[in-house]
Design a protein around this nucleic acid. Structure first.
Lengths: 233, 233
DNA sequence: AAGTATTTGTCCGTATGTATC
DNA sequence: GGATACATACGGACAAATACT
């Protein structure tokens, strides 16, 4: 026997329909949309279901409801629908390959910038992160697949762009949630190799050599990619 | 008289409290959380208000509710909370300066890749976009601040990374919604200069010269930044 | 395997606070 | 300031899906 497809929930249906109305420009930024009671008549569902859909749209900052004055489409609705699509893409297209490729686009440039901008305090902090990593790897009591994470993130912080920093954090944490990354770091030897590459990048940052830092970062990420490919073959 | 700060909405309060419980690890992925009726007793609010909060968390893919089996914290809750924070950062930190800086990190590398990967069809498409732009600029009937948009996006498409492509789209559309970008393109002369730079980048892509394409893109974006600074002084 | 209990899904009615004219 | 229209919030009821015994 085949399973029936799960029945659509009403609030999700309403949500999608309203979203489509706004996307299609039938309800435009600034417009006041029908009242909850009117919507419940239009869609032939209860006011509760309407409200659940509206509360979601409100949280997405696409609409705004106020007692007395009704519900309006926000001026920023277009941008926030874009955000929604960005999140959808991020969820659907996140594979090991695509995420590593994304890092490959961003991180070499961040290394370049870090080599230009790093001050003494930044250098100290990076140095400390490397020392902690060494200890973590030698202290084999626990397994540490996230051992290199803080080095990459600190480097992004030095590059001094909060948007890219947060974006890279999402990308990298998503990557860590995939099993494949852990395959890449299942023995001490591999972890130490990775650490050596971090040391090399750090050296170029410390000596203010942006071009070399960038190349070293590119090669570092490429190796991780190739290393995994080896395993799979 | 001073206005009282708007009273917190109950569903938002509940939402934040539940989110905090999950962030703090008190409710962990896989856990079944209290029933709606229990929650309404715990928080001392109606079941409707609980549901409005839960529906938002469900849409964020942090929890999942099913009739009969209750509400559970999803395995991907951690990543999706990250997504939430990414969107918050994107909303809060998006200024002309930070967004242009973000493009400056990403787009030169995309130009580099485009010069490596572009096939004949891609070249044709880019060429066509430039021709359309020329016509749009000469056809002064309407003002076209988005005239350069499709060139940049097509280039990102050729670079062949959907995540970065969508990310750049969000960034760029957000940028276009800021008034400042339009200041940058208020006369025909400026638009034609911009177009010339596009032609230059295109030339390097067509002749498979990644290094030059990258440099040209970098300079192109830098000029836009500087141009605006001139206006402000 | 069948029936009962539990839990979310959906609906309705009502009272209250708030904005607008 | 009074009347009206609206969202906010509550409680109760039953249906539908799942779990449990």
């Amino acid at each position: 026997m085949y399973k029936l497809p799960p029945r659509n929930l009403i609030y999700q249906d309403v949500l999608n329909q309203i979203l489509t109305l706004i996307k299609n420009g039938e309800w435009i930024a600034g417009d006041r949309i029908p009242t909850e009671t009117e919507l419940s008549k239009i869609f032939q569902v209860s006011r509760n279901s309407i409200r659940e859909a509206l509360k979601i749209l409100e949280h997405l900052k696409i609409i705004s409801s106020k007692a007395g004055s009704g519900t309006h489409v926000l001026e920023e609705s277009f941008q926030n629908i874009q955000m929604l699509e960005l999140v959808d893409t991020l969820r659907q297209k996140s594979t090991y390959e695509s995420l590593m490729d994304t890092r490959l686009i961003i991180e070499p440039e961040l290394a370049y910038r870090a080599a230009l901008k790093a001050n003494e305090k930044d250098i100290k902090k990076l140095e400390n992160i490397i020392i902690v990593s060494i200890n973590q790897i030698n202290d084999e009591e626990y397994f540490t697949p996230t051992v290199g994470f803080s080095f990459h993130m600190e480097l992004a912080k030095i590059a001094d762009n909060e948007i890219i920093w947060k974006f890279l954090e999402s990308i990298t944490l998503e990557l860590l949630s995939l099993r494949k990354v852990i395959m890449n770091k299942h023995n001490k030897e591999d972890l130490l190799k990775e650490l050596d590459e971090h040391k090399e990048i750090f050296g170029f940052i410390k000596s203010n050599n942006p071009e070399q830092a960038k190349i070293a970062m590119y090669n570092h990420l490429k190796k991780a990619q190739n290393h995994l490919t080896d395993y799979e073959n």
